[in-house]
Design a protein around this nucleic acid. Structure first.
Length: 227
DNA sequence: GTTAGGATCTCCT
DNA sequence: GGAGATCCTAACT
């Protein structure tokens, strides 16, 4: 607290520079993979909701037949994708909202879909936001949006300058990461098969997994003695 | 355990 | 009118 307003401005600038570097300096699939174990925070008037990212998918812009930005096709819905790294892209699918984080520099419409998270703080609030408990709280892209109560108005706003923020440092480290093709991408040739989905092996808060593969003790995260 | 139908917004034909 | 980066419930096996 020594720099007053100027210090705060410097701090915000530093954080945003770090976020930008994290979301631009590597290929988007690498970014999607490395987001596992990082925390998302949603600041509400009545408290903060926190969750660990457990499952992601990479969408690779113009060449990617599975992506909204395929062939650089821009519409009012998806224009956030052309904004700089760290921009929040939220869109509605049927009755649900889905959360994406834009990667790479402005004009390169790549992003990471956040497909699942593990609740860390604000569990009670998440249960109120959804009429569900347990893994069903956040083990899907539409579910986690409802659990966190993220409004569609966040679309187009920058991470960490809005109520939604991402930790640059990971909080946990996956013991093992599983890579598969993306969910729901059908009839898109090679892009249907492309291995662009990543999740923490054994974590219960992952979409479309068998209950039998769940690691009930550590949720697939490395424990201190294993590091 | 799997499957079918409906909810309901945006974009395309 | 139809499909989609989804999810819930009910009704099956």
């Amino acid at each position: 607290m020594d720099g007053g307003i100027l210090g705060l401005v410097r701090e915000v600038f530093f954080i945003n520079s770090a976020i930008t570097a994290f979301l631009t300096d590597r290929p988007t699939p690498t970014i999607a993979r490395s987001l596992l174990g990082h925390q998302l925070h949603f600041q509400t008037p009545t408290g903060k909701l926190t969750a660990l990212i457990t499952e992601t998918e990479a969408y690779l812009g113009a060449p990617d037949a599975g992506a909204h930005a395929y062939q650089n096709h821009q519409t009012p819905r998806n224009r956030a994708l052309w904004q700089p790294a760290g921009t929040i892209y939220i869109y509605q699918l049927r009755a649900w909202l889905l959360l994406n984080l834009v990667t790479q520099s402005a004009g390169t419409p790549e992003c990471v879909l956040i497909r699942a998270v593990e609740p860390v703080a604000g569990l009670k609030r998440m249960q109120q936001n959804r009429a569900q408990t347990g893994a069903n709280l956040t083990n899907g892209p539409g579910k986690l949006m409802q659990a966190l109560g993220l409004p569609r108005e966040l679309n187009g706003h920058p991470l960490n300058e809005s109520a939604l923020s991402l930790d640059i440092q990971p909080s946990r480290q996956p013991a093992q990461i599983v890579t598969t093709s993306r969910i729901g991408i059908v009839n898109k040739g090679a892009w249907t098969q492309a291995a662009l989905r990543y999740y923490v092996a054994g974590n219960p808060y992952v979409s479309k997994i068998s209950r039998r593969t769940v690691d009930h003790q550590h949720h697939g995260w490395l424990v201190a003695s294993e590091r």
